[in-house]
Write a protein that binds this DNA or RNA. Structure first.
Lengths: 243, 243
DNA sequence: CGGCTGCTTGATCAAGTTCAACTTTTGTGG
DNA sequence: CCACAAAAGTTGAACTTGATCAAGCAGCCG
């Protein structure tokens, strides 16, 4: 079922069988795309929205010099540009970080959902509210935390979000981000990310090999990064964290 | 009409007469509140949402030490906690900055709107998408701009948003924020805000008396703060900016 | 193989914080 | 309305964080 990870990561209301079927039948196409490719460019007009099925994707705003600030990091189960359904165009770019698999939903089908499927609509709205909640956490992180805290905070976020969609095994997960990527996310330079990562690694908070990370001390990272998963409103069945 | 500023600031779709009447009749109460008072505390469960009619309000996340990071600044016409309708509880606090006047909407009435008034629902959803868009601009500002740029950027934001709801006259507007307030918004200390403000003032970008600001060089501030009002998706009738 | 990108490390520099002191303004109670 | 306390505004000096500049090394892709 294509919507499975969406329901794991973003679903909070119970959906009926017919509602799930409606989601599945709303999909207009599924495609794969290589790493480091643009999915949406800011300002272009949109007539469909994309659900990420596999891989990692990031949204970016560019500064005057072309340097990028990431504004959201996406894991499987996330809609990538559902905001585009309401706004019709985006104020930022969307690009893959790893190779990815994506399902698309035409906006005219989403319009039918908003008109005839109130419970599903609410679920879509809810998903965009979660995006906003994640945005607020990033504002907090960038405004109040020092480099070490920001990085610890982001590691906690991705760990918890990947765990929600079943992509963490024994505290470890696939993590193909480069140090410059982390810099674009945390508002630091790649050089400084390098120094902080090493310090965190040497303190035993996590271990990393080429393309994956294992979290060794989630509690410690959460303390450093002042991280609390409540902002994700985790499904009530498991209000606990830190598996 | 109580929803007038909402329509000026957040309305993008044409609403019918009956839809406007529905909004007006959905209001359950209107109240006034003093400056520096809490409106919503994080985590508390919500059964109504508030529309700001007059005054300034801010949303905050607190760090470990109790220091606050503002995550959104609200002007008249903004819903303050519409996100609470979907999320049922907030991850942050909402507090008045000035004295304020607020209209409340019970969630059961909003539920009726989502079930029976698709066009109105979309308008409410759109308003929360604009909040997310503003959040993203703050992430960019905090992640990529230096102190001077961040402050210039915020001054542009508030100037444009207040202008949209008709609260700017000859480039001037009521502005009761203290320098520590600006620090909580921009992620800087009050001391540094002081130095930067003075530098901007002495360069002729704006003038300030006790409780108001007059923007003298919007273009210059926008350049400094890398500000572009597109992210607010201004009503198409006036895609122009910088009155 | 060659070149690009990322990773690593050191040295220097600049931005912004912290601490401290003092002045001005604002709000409150008598 | 005045006195006083609390908060905001201002300024300087020392200090810290992270950026910038620079250089060498290691993977990876074509």
């Amino acid at each position: 079922m294509i919507s499975r990870k969406f329901l794991m990561g973003r679903g909070r209301e119970q959906l009926s069988i017919s509602e799930r079927k409606m989601i599945e039948s709303s999909i207009s196409s599924v495609f794969e795309i290589a790493a480091r490719k643009p999915l949406v460019r800011h300002g272009e007009s949109l007539d469909k929205s994309m659900l990420l099925l596999e891989g990692f994707v990031c949204r970016y705003k560019k500064d005057m010099t072309g340097a990028r600030q990431a504004v959201e990091f996406h894991v499987p189960g996330d809609f990538l540009d559902l905001h585009g359904f309401g706004l019709k165009r985006l104020d930022h770019d969307i690009e893959t970080i790893s190779e990815a698999k994506v399902a698309t939903f035409n906006h005219d089908v989403l319009t039918i959902i908003t008109e005839q499927w109130p419970n599903l609509s609410k679920s879509l709205w809810f998903s965009t509210l979660l995006d906003a909640s994640m945005h607020r956490k990033w504002i907090f992180s960038h405004g109040r935390l020092r480099a070490e805290g920001r990085i610890a905070n982001f590691l906690c976020e991705i760990y918890v979000r990947l765990d929600m969609v079943g992509l963490v095994t024994d505290g470890a997960f696939h993590f193909p981000l480069t140090q410059p990527d982390l810099g674009e996310i945390t508002g630091l330079t790649g050089v400084h990310v390098n120094r902080v990562l090493r310090s965190l690694r040497s303190q035993g908070f996590f271990a990393a090999d080429r393309r994956s990370i294992q979290i060794l001390d989630y509690e410690g990272l959460a303390r450093l990064g002042e991280f609390n998963a409540d902002y994700l409103l985790p499904p009530s069945t498991s209000a606990k964290r830190a598996p």
